[in-house]
Computed example of a mutant assay.
Amino acid sequence: MPADVLSLDIIVPILVYCALLWWVGRGMGWTARLATAAVTLVLVVCVLLVERGWR
């Protein structure tokens, strides 16, 4: 896979995640936003571990 396609596969979801976090978090305080970001990142790591077969 070319490097530019790989980087887009990483950059686009991060940008979408930031936009959604901003949209949802408009009424939240900073601690709630940080907690939401942390929980989401933990879920992403869990999904990656499951997809890669717990290696």
Rank of each mutant, 00 (worst) to 15 (best):
A32N: 01
W54K: 08
I10N: 06
G53W: 06
R26W: 07
A32Y: 06
V45F: 15
A32M: 11
V16K: 07
M28D: 04
L41D: 10
V16S: 07
R26Y: 00
R55S: 11
Y17G: 07
C46N: 15
W22S: 02
P2A: 01
D9F: 09
R33Q: 07
T31S: 08
E51V: 13
A37E: 04
I10T: 10
T36C: 03
L49A: 11
W54L: 15
A35T: 01
I10A: 06
I14T: 10
V24Y: 06
A35F: 04
V5D: 02
V24M: 04
T40Y: 06
T36Q: 05
V16L: 12
A19G: 03
I10L: 14
V47W: 12
V39K: 06
A3H: 09
T31Q: 05
L15C: 03
P2R: 03
T40G: 10
V16D: 06
L34S: 11
W23E: 00
V12D: 04
D9S: 06
V12Q: 05
L41K: 15
W22K: 08
L49R: 14
V45M: 15
A38M: 05
T40M: 12
Y17T: 09
R52I: 07
G29H: 01
L49T: 08
V47S: 08
V50I: 15
I10W: 08
M28G: 09
C46R: 15
L8Y: 05
A32C: 03
P2M: 00
D4V: 00
A3G: 01
L20H: 13
T36E: 02
A32T: 02
E51W: 03
V44N: 12
A37C: 05
V24C: 13
P2Q: 02
M1H: 11
R55N: 15
D4C: 00
I10V: 04
D9N: 09
G29Q: 04
M1A: 08
R33C: 06
S7R: 15
W23V: 03
M1Q: 09
I11E: 08
G25S: 00
T31C: 07
G27S: 13
C46D: 14
L41H: 10
C46P: 08
I14A: 08
L21P: 00
V42I: 05
L34A: 12
L21V: 07
E51K: 08
E51T: 11
Y17V: 07
V50S: 13
A37N: 03
I14R: 10
A3F: 01
W30P: 02
V47C: 09
I11F: 02
V39E: 09
L43S: 09
D4N: 05
R33K: 12
V45P: 05
V50H: 14
L34V: 07
